[in-house]
């Protein structure tokens, strides 16, 4: 599909970010950074604060502490819609596609929302649909799709917002390892073509290890490790989280 666009490299950065609910620190003092063209994996056990971190970065939740910036722009108290306009776009675990719109219309709605005219929106939507292998389902209503295809439709819709940073919440859930790797590699290819940064929340360590440039590990709302996948894999704290203490 379209050619790569030359864009100034950007950084999406959360510094000391936290969310506190009635004294409970769901996320506490987490600093995370994603650069253009980079795929950062956000991993950790259930309840470790991965989705909450995504909610903070996307504007679904307001931060109780810390700052979120896109280059020089302070996003900390900015609405989700304004962040989307600036290019910070997320997907949801549950897809949240428009059930009665076709797959093509779902993607087109996002392209129109990003400010494109009808013809260019349709062309962009068609290109993304081809790239993610959704062409056979393009004219089917989203409500008739399988769970996996709904997730891919949601990703296609996010891509149609022309993101500078894409925040993906378990995009490959319900797919086997090879399907998951293939999907995330497509997203990675798309992102690198456009110098777009990706923050990927994913459970499957094998998928994460094969697709991410950098990993960030959370446990109980706090950062326990970060670095290159090979280094993180050897980190004793990560081994303890995933495999328990060695006796």
């Amino acid at each position: 599909m379209g050619t790569a666009t030359a864009r100034r490299p950007s950084v999406l950065r959360m510094a000391g970010g936290g969310v506190h609910f009635d004294g409970l620190k769901a996320v506490d003092d987490v600093s995370i950074e994603v650069r253009s063209g980079q795929v950062v994996g956000l991993i950790g056990p259930n309840g470790s604060g991965k989705t909450t971190t995504l909610n903070l970065l996307s504007g679904m939740l307001r931060a109780s502490a810390g700052t979120i910036r896109l280059d020089d722009v302070d996003l900390t108290s900015m609405s989700m819609r304004k962040r989307v306009r600036l290019g910070v776009v997320r997907t949801f675990q549950s897809g949240r596609v428009f059930a009665r719109l076709t797959v093509l219309e779902n993607v087109e709605a996002a392209a129109l929302g990003s400010g494109l005219g009808r013809r260019r929106a349709r062309a962009l939507a068609a290109g993304i649909i081809d790239e993610l292998g959704l062409r056979p389902d393009a004219d089917r209503r989203a409500e008739s799709l399988t769970a996996g295809r709904i997730r891919i439709t949601a990703i296609a819709r996010a891509l149609a917002c022309r993101p500078r940073f894409l925040l993906l919440d378990e995009p490959a859930a319900g797919q086997n390892e090879s399907e998951a790797v293939s999907l995330i590699r497509s997203i990675r290819g798309f992102a690198q073509d456009r110098d777009c940064g990706v923050l990927l929340v994913e459970h499957d360590m094998a998928v994460v290890m094969q697709t991410c440039d950098h990993l960030h590990v959370l446990d109980s709302g706090r950062t326990v490790a970060e670095g290159a996948p090979a280094d993180v894999r050897r980190d004793p704290r990560v081994i303890e989280i995933y495999f328990g203490k060695r006796h």
Partner: peptide
């Protein structure tokens, strides 16, 4: 169908 989601998409 979902005004909040539509707004989130711009």
């Amino acid at each position: 169908e979902n005004f909040q989601m539509a707004k989130c998409l711009g």
